[in-house]
Design a protein around this nucleic acid. Structure first.
Lengths: 308, 308
DNA sequence: AGTGAACTTTCCAAGTATGAAAGACCTCAG
DNA sequence: CTGAGGTCTTTCATACTTGGAAAGTTCACT
């Protein structure tokens, strides 16, 4: 049973995702009759039924769903290989992952990371989940601790501090409840901290972005990184820095890849970005101290800035 | 450049690993001329040279080596899918990973985990590296802490304690140096502990098994799990249990897979095995206290225990 | 109930990939 | 220096896979 073709698995993936032959035919460039035959052959070779065929399309059987799950992992593993081989013509597409707050921080300063003249393009993968750098689901990650296993390398990026924030203009700040992430969705220490403190929690949400919006709207006090709170003119600190949450961020990369010129360049950019914003990240630039320009760091408020 | 065939990547893998066409032809069942053509096509499609061809075989170019690295990851991702599809005819091959000491512990009791009547076969993957359960490099892992990310589930397996051991028969035990893992190869806390204590280290090794042998041979005192030291008649404890190293072991599995009957059964077996040996693992059965029979734990040391 | 759209499936001619055998070449041993 | 054993490459007839067009079916909407 070793003679299964990887191509058939790939086609299976597209048929399963498209929900039918014709959709998969459009996506793959392989004709529908061929797809039908290949799927049939796949089922005959394995002796398992993968699809429930109907005139409306192909539905997955339980076995088919299990296979799709595994082939998806394969699909993910295939991308690095395919990317490597397509680097000739296009600029490589580097994937950088970060949590919500960090991703926002990076997005605001994207011009410092990736411009049209750089030998790469950039995908910002925003997720609280820990993606797999060792298997190259992403090329680069910003984490709150150094990596453990795998052949991964890392560079420290500096301190990140957290503080409680509230909306700038609320009538009686001392009456505010707290806003927190739903504990079931909370993975980060900062999210759990609110619950551990026994603060009175008035509102909860399931995403970091929503918590931020709630705090802005005056729903209560929320914990967030200083870089987030201190750059939002609608927010004010509601207390001192929470030292218990202070963490050192790390840039994590695949050990084999870090010398590739495009990646090397992006790494340097990120290191510089963090270096230049070290005080903001560390909470040492509280409450819009830099004046009116702070809200738009990257906008051409000073025309002479970006000459490349 | 999306039209690369996964099959070609698979063939590339075999050609690269075999170091030539004829070797790959034997392994894949695809004829050498075809392999040669496919590799040529692969290079033409990507515009990159992957091999250095000679009469003695195919050598990889740097690009080829980088690709091989990535295709290897793909190969690993493919196995779960292929395994799933072959489950019909054969009993599935479950992969269980553990560190050296734990693997030995399991190997000594393999009869409790997997017999000819079980609906699965077992591969014991012994490595100190952390393999990837979320991506199904292995199906089951025994770890010293619960999993973090991914859709992983875990079950606690009980306490594991560590103690220092020395050879049973040494003339002057008080003169013994310590035996340690080379710090560069040490990942586990127990291996680092010896260095941190400032003990005088006489001998070092780069593998856990070698350290064990060195201790048996009288080279010095070494730290190891109680289940290892207390079941080796050639060893004696050289000090009390090191509580700082005590850890809770966890059985980690893929959340989607844990209900598959074969895996379910293996999990139950492992849980029972750990339950029945809880005192040994926790270091509560020191120094062959059970007398001469202790060296063979598999025997019914207390006849009323396992009725199965 | 009727119509239209979308899907899968069948059929067949054209194209393409395949493997056996033969050729060319290198390496190593005697 | 010569021959044996291994490698890759080329040739060529075969067998296979492929895609277009048309048929057959079902579902959804009017």
């Amino acid at each position: 049973m070793k003679d299964l073709s990887w191509d058939d698995l790939n086609l299976f993936f597209h048929v399963a995702e498209a929900g039918g032959l014709s959709g998969a035919a459009r996506r793959t460039g392989v004709s529908a009759p061929t797809l039908g035959r290949r799927m049939l052959a796949l089922e005959q070779q394995t002796g398992r039924s993968l699809f429930v065929r109907s005139q409306t399309g192909y539905d997955l059987t339980p076995t088919g769903a299990a296979l799709l799950d595994r082939v998806r992992a394969m699909q993910a593993a295939a991308r690095p290989a395919l990317d490597l081989l397509s680097e000739t013509s296009e600029r490589p597409l580097l994937r950088l992952t970060a949590g919500t707050a960090t991703a926002m921080f990076l997005a605001d300063r994207i011009a410092m990371l990736c411009g049209p003249d750089d030998p790469y393009r950039l995908t910002l993968v925003t997720t609280e989940a820990v993606l797999d750098i060792a298997h190259r689901e992403v090329d680069l990650g910003i984490r709150n601790r150094p990596p453990e296993g795998g052949n991964l390398a890392s560079r420290p990026l500096g301190m990140l501090r957290f503080a409680p924030y509230r909306a700038m203009s609320v009538p009686r700040p001392e009456l505010l409840d707290w806003v927190a992430l739903d504990p079931a969705h909370a993975r980060h220490p900062a999210a759990l901290w609110v619950h551990d403190q026994g603060h009175r929690i008035g509102t909860m949400a399931t995403s970091v972005g929503t918590v931020h919006q709630l705090v802005r709207a005056g729903a209560g006090i929320g914990v967030m990184p200083c870089m987030t709170g201190d750059t939002d003119p609608a927010l004010a600190r509601a207390g001192p820095i929470i030292e218990a949450l202070t963490e050192t961020q790390h840039l994590v990369m695949h050990d084999d890849d870090r010398h590739r010129p495009p990646l090397r360049r992006l790494i340097d950019r990120i290191l510089r970005l963090y270096d230049e914003n070290a005080d903001l990240l560390a909470g040492l630039r509280p409450l819009r101290g830099a004046g009116p320009r702070a809200a738009s760091d990257q906008l051409p408020s000073d025309p002479g800035a970006g000459s490349a």
